[in-house]
């Protein structure tokens, strides 16, 4: 009786033993069923390996020269689209995010704004682009509308969360001076969310540029169109050049925006 040793074991992550075993079982059945239901054509993959090798080698050396004017035109078009879409999207997002903040908006406006956000977030940019290209014709305008719309979902959601987190007493103090609603937003709310606002704008600019590279594939203009054309013509060297240009621009944008964000704090 007394020779029972004191044993210490690490506390398990999930306390309930049944739940723990259940979770493990659940995960393994899930993995098994994925494995069973997914048709993977191993033959095709084996064939694909040498083909893939050739394919990858086809990318080298990247060819910036042959289609340089097309690449440049595509890049600039993407940039225009990105800038306009980000500005338009943010301008529309401001009222939406005020409406989607529980502490500011009346119930009716709140649900309306949340609905707008959910709708714009549900569809990936590419799907939206397909439809806008269908409605408005090929070209950068459809791309711009797509990017603006998806900016709203992203921006308004995150900004409204920040508005909901503001320091209440600062806002209350402004209200107690007898300010009207707009003054209250301008003095009590805006200064508090400004750092987040600027950070999100820069972040979204960066995202919009990256997205502009894909919506071109479905006809939304910009560098994506150039990339798509290069693939269609089997000019993989040019495609490689386009990819490298995209990566380097994203790196530059990201670097500058992180520096700007630090400056603004």
């Amino acid at each position: 009786m007394n020779d029972k040793k004191v044993i210490w074991k690490r506390k398990p992550l999930i306390k309930n033993r049944l739940l723990r075993i259940g979770l493990i079982l659940l995960i393994s059945t899930y993995l098994l069923s994925v494995f069973l239901t997914t048709e993977i054509d191993w033959q095709r993959i084996l064939e694909g390996i040498p083909r893939g090798k050739n394919f990858i080698f086809a990318f080298f050396p990247p060819d910036f020269i042959t289609r340089s004017d097309e690449i440049l035109a595509g890049i600039f078009e993407s940039l225009w689209m990105t800038i306009v879409a980000t500005i338009v999207g943010i301008l529309i997002s401001i009222p939406v995010s005020l409406g989607a903040a529980k502490n500011i908006a009346p119930k009716f406006v709140y649900f309306l704004s949340r609905g707008v956000i959910t709708l714009s977030r549900s569809f990936q940019e590419v799907i939206l682009a397909i439809f806008f290209v269908k409605l408005m014709g090929f070209g950068p305008f459809a791309g711009m509308v797509t990017l603006s719309l998806s900016t709203i979902g992203f921006f308004a959601k995150l900004l409204s969360e920040d508005i909901e987190d503001i320091n209440k007493s600062q806002a209350e103090a402004i209200k107690s001076t007898g300010s009207n609603w707009f003054q209250w937003v301008n003095y009590g709310v805006q200064p508090q969310v400004m750092p987040r606002f600027i950070g999100l704008s820069l972040y979204r600019l960066d995202i919009n540029f990256r997205e502009s590279a894909v919506i071109g594939i479905v006809g939304g203009g910009g560098i994506g169109s150039t990339l798509n054309t290069a693939f269609d013509r089997y000019e993989f060297e040019t495609a490689a050049a386009v990819l490298i240009v995209i990566i380097s621009i994203v790196m530059i944008v990201e670097y500058t925006s992180s520096h700007l964000r630090k400056l603004i704090k």
């Binding site: 320091n167 007493s169 600062q170 103090a173 200064p191 508090q192």
Partner: peptide, 8 residues
Amino acid sequence: EFALVERL
């Protein structure tokens, strides 16, 4: 807690 708007 003073409730000044801190960033103004």
